[in-house]
Simulated assay, not measured.
Amino acid sequence: MDIRASTVLPARREDIELHTADGLTLVGELALPETGPPAATLVCLHPLPTHGGMMDSHVLRKASYRLPALAGIAVLRFNTRGTTSDRGTSQGAFDEGEGERWDVAAALEYADFHDLPNPWLLGWSFGTELALRWGRDPLVRGAILLSPPLKRAGDEDVAAWGEFGRPLVALVPELDDYLRPEEAARRFAAAPQAEVIGVEGAKHLWVGEPYVRVVLDEVVKRLNPAAAPLPTTV
């Protein structure tokens, strides 16, 4: 069977709640390999909720549909404060990336408490800003950024991640609306360990199965290299 955009592979899926230090309950889902412990954990930070971003944004949803089965990776997705998806609405209100620091902390606390191994952050657009600003936690093994705009998170945050020392991978669409590969390479130079990968033909929203495969393969290369590249059939 070919793996298509709508393919959902077997996993142990559980609706979860995250509890923030400022008293909010956030809704989410944890997808685990069907058998055995995960090799690593992907904590997903979605795009801008005021422009339709949520835990079901398509790249994150497809990560949860495929990576537990194909790469043994646990995928934790959740709605940041005030965000709605089919899973429900998280308490609170959108806070321009400020109060969301507690949302990121709550997700990492959940991963820690439930012994989810080797957590990496996967941020997309607005989610990259949350990763850069609030993801510098000793628990975090690294971060993968999709379409980083470097607006709310700026050069000082990139430099701070450089000092943090953990791996940082930026997947930058050739045709991005906000930041393209050449400028991204210049700005991410403030973090010496950062790897900027320009993706030919891709746009900010990563529409199209070939671009989703690029993203998921790059994720697996970092979190469980033995499973890369991902198969296209099952």
Rank of each mutant, 00 (worst) to 15 (best):
A63S: 14
K221D: 10
A194N: 02
R77A: 00
R13P: 09
A227H: 08
S85L: 09
A105L: 13
R166I: 00
A189I: 06
P231L: 06
P210N: 03
L67T: 04
S6A: 15
L30P: 03
P192S: 12
L26K: 05
Q193H: 06
A185S: 14
E156W: 06
G72I: 00
K203H: 12
E200W: 00
P117G: 08
D15N: 14
E218L: 09
P47C: 07
D86W: 03
L121R: 12
R66Q: 14
P68Y: 01
E129P: 04
P138Y: 11
D157Q: 13
S64T: 07
R81S: 09
L108R: 05
A39R: 12
A191H: 02
V207D: 13
P181K: 13
I197A: 07
F113L: 15
A153C: 09
R66W: 15
V75H: 06
V220M: 06
T7M: 09
A184V: 02
E200M: 09
T25H: 12
D2G: 04
A74D: 08
A31G: 04
T50A: 12
G165H: 09
A191T: 07
E209R: 04
L42T: 02
H204G: 09
S6W: 12
A40R: 07
G88R: 05
H58K: 12
R87K: 13
R213M: 02
G92N: 01
E182T: 13
D95K: 10
G53F: 03
T233A: 15
L18F: 01
H58P: 02
G162S: 11
V214P: 01
A159N: 01
G97V: 01
P231I: 06
H204D: 09
P37K: 14
F78R: 08
E209K: 02
R136T: 02
A93Y: 06
P229I: 05
S6I: 04
T233K: 14
P138F: 09
R66L: 15
V169F: 03
T80G: 15
A31F: 02
Q91V: 01
I16E: 11
P181I: 11
W206F: 14
E14G: 00
P38T: 05
